[in-house]
Write a protein that binds this DNA or RNA. Structure first.
Length: 564
DNA sequence: GCCGTTTTCGGCCCGACTGTTTTCAGTCG
């Protein structure tokens, strides 16, 4: 649905529609994408317009999608406008106005036609287009045909990279203060480019130093206060520099998100204030208020400080206005890890003892070792139990819980004997195959199992590689509450499953979640940082996270009787 | 197209960089 509205926005833009109408469709698309409940059902009941950015017209168009399979306005325009024009928009530097002129004035309607026109220097006959534009078109279209479109970068790769670059530039003589910003600072699961901001006495000197970094493969833009580079490893970095007194304004501006800032500024305009990265201007008096910290920016605009992870215009501004933001969970609050593997699973690198000692060194009180069921057949299950018992005697008061990760079969059954499951402290059931075959029903059945405590990586997605199961979260959350089963936020950088909006829906329903590393080696225990980030984006406080509790309390939550 | 502690009409965030042009429109974030 969101994709259709985005396509409609693109086509309207090429047609030359008024920009705010286009913006309205884009906002609606974003809202639909971030709404965890079924928007189609809401629209049929006439309730979709309760969503911010969805009004009467867009609600009607949602109903058209449900009832007719397509939006009439979209079908009409698809007939009129050549489909390749959408691809033109993806060429850097070509926007809707230029694409429209290339189409209407030069009669070009295909990607190949565009490439040829650029090669034959026919684009420059249009005023405003010149040799450089033709060069950009040729470059974009030849690149596009070789490797696939540039992938978004996982947080697990972008965050360490930006931290290292910040540390490097921190020591540079030009730099006053420097920080990560943008979607990495908001800890989004993937990023398109990595943003940095800095203050400096000599901004031009700093951007020059930035584009001259040894790892830079390409300089995409370079001005005195702003530069964009592409590194040899494919990462795109953006640096923006302002004077020291505006550090708070700049950090706030460049952390985003765009939607958050848009809403923040619209609200400010209504109060006679104009907000930019340089400061807050009182329109009436032209007084400029600069802020050295983000907290000052938010306070001056009437909000409490909003943690970066919440800045998506999904209710945080209203909550901050009322002083009702949640106190978000942080990594230090975790008392244990409820999903990890040892060399009892052949896809893992470290022994039970190595994993346990590493967890203890992180300050945990307990871990559940949850090796895969197919590696613990027959007497291997008992042998592992003996090893755990022996280790527990030596490591006390640290505790290794005996766990297992079982597969959810096609019929919703799990693949380990009941007597083994009954002997476990903690049982995770996960989908590992056939994600398209009734995933909802299979998970619901697994939750009904008397010995299953948690559903691991519920959708089984792999970011950038596999969509994962198309789950209907509402009944799953309801069943989880009913059966005292928990859901996991899996911290592997390419899983982060449940994702933010789903985890938020679970929290709002009153369900606690486990933040687990799913480590297969010692180094991966630290991945819980990414799971915690996802939890923070989902508005979770420490109380919403199962493994912030001592094991004794977790155990009590598993219910009396059959789930024990 | 959406929305309302100035409005049911008339607004709608703000600034940097590029490529082109002689002062700016378009694009981008």
């Amino acid at each position: 649905m969101a994709e259709r509205f985005e396509l409609l926005a693109d086509l309207l833009e090429i047609e030359g529609a008024e920009s705010y109408r286009v913006l309205a469709y884009r906002r609606a698309a974003a809202r639909i994408r971030e709404t965890p409940t079924a928007v189609a059902e809401m629209a049929l009941e006439g309730k979709a317009r309760a969503l911010p950015g969805v009004g009467r017209t867009i609600e009607e168009k949602i109903v058209q999608i449900v009832q007719d399979g397509e939006i009439k306005a979209l079908r009409d325009r698809r007939d009129r406008i050549p489909s390749d024009l959408i691809a033109f928009l993806r060429v850097p530097g070509l926007g809707p106005k230029t694409v429209r002129r290339i189409w209407q004035e030069l009669g070009i309607t295909t990607v190949e036609g565009l490439r040829q026109a650029a090669a034959e220097q026919r684009l420059r006959v249009l005023t405003g287009l010149g040799p450089k534009t033709e060069e950009n078109v040729l470059k974009a279209l030849s690149v596009e045909q070789a490797p696939p479109a540039p992938q978004r970068t996982l947080l697990g790769k972008a965050l360490p990279a930006v931290r290292q670059l910040v540390a490097e530039l921190q020591d540079d003589a030009h730099v006053d203060r420097i920080s990560e910003a943008g979607s990495v600072r908001r800890r989004k699961e993937t990023t398109r480019d990595v943003d940095l901001i800095a203050t400096a006495r000599d901004p031009a000197g700093l951007t020059a130093r930035f584009v001259a970094h040894e790892a830079v493969a390409e300089v995409a833009a370079h001005g005195p206060t702003k530069a964009t580079v592409v590194w040899q490893n494919g990462l795109r970095f953006d640096l923006r520099v302002v004077p020291p007194e505006s550090y708070g304004n700049l950090l706030q501006h460049f952390t985003g998100s765009k939607d958050h800032n848009l809403a923040l500024r619209e609200a400010a305009v209504r109060e006679g204030l104009s907000v930019s990265e340089y400061g807050i201007v009182v329109v009436e008096t032209n007084e400029v208020i600069t802020a050295e910290s983000e907290e000052d920016v938010y306070r001056r605009l009437g909000y409490e400080l909003i943690p970066p992870e919440l800045r998506e215009n999904l209710g945080e501004l209203e909550a901050a206005r009322r002083g009702e933001l949640p106190r978000l969970v942080d990594v230090d609050a975790l008392r244990g890890d409820l999903h990890m593997h040892s060399t009892w699973s052949t896809d893992a690198d470290h022994s039970l003892e190595e994993m346990a000692r590493a967890a203890q060194a992180r300050g945990y009180d307990y871990v559940a070792v949850t090796d895969h069921s197919h590696y613990l057949r027959e007497d291997r299950f008992r042998a592992q139990a003996e090893e755990i018992a022996a280790l527990n005697e030596r490591l006390t008061p640290f505790r290794i819980l005996q766990g297992i990760e079982v597969n959810i079969g096609l019929d919703g059954s799990v693949d380990a004997p009941d007597e083994d499951l009954a002997a476990c402290d903690w049982v995770i059931a996960s989908l590992h195959r056939a994600f398209d075959s009734s995933p909802n029903e299979r998970i619901l059945a697994a939750m009904e199992h008397p010995h299953v405590h948690c559903i691991g990586h519920p959708t089984a997605r792999k970011i950038g590689r596999r969509e994962g199961a198309d789950l209907d979260l509402e009944p799953l959350i309801a069943k989880a509450l009913e059966t005292r089963t928990f859901l996991e936020i899996n911290s592997q950088p390419d899983r982060l499953d449940l994702r933010d909006v789903h985890a938020r829906a679970a929290r709002e329903a009153g369900l606690q979640l486990a933040i687990s590393s799913d480590s297969h080696r010692v180094s991966e225990l630290a991945n819980v940082e990414y799971g915690v980030a996802q939890a923070r984006r989902a508005w979770l406080g420490a109380g919403d996270v199962l493994n912030t509790r001592p094991w004794r309390e977790v155990e009590a939550l598993l219910g009396s009787g059959e789930k024990r």
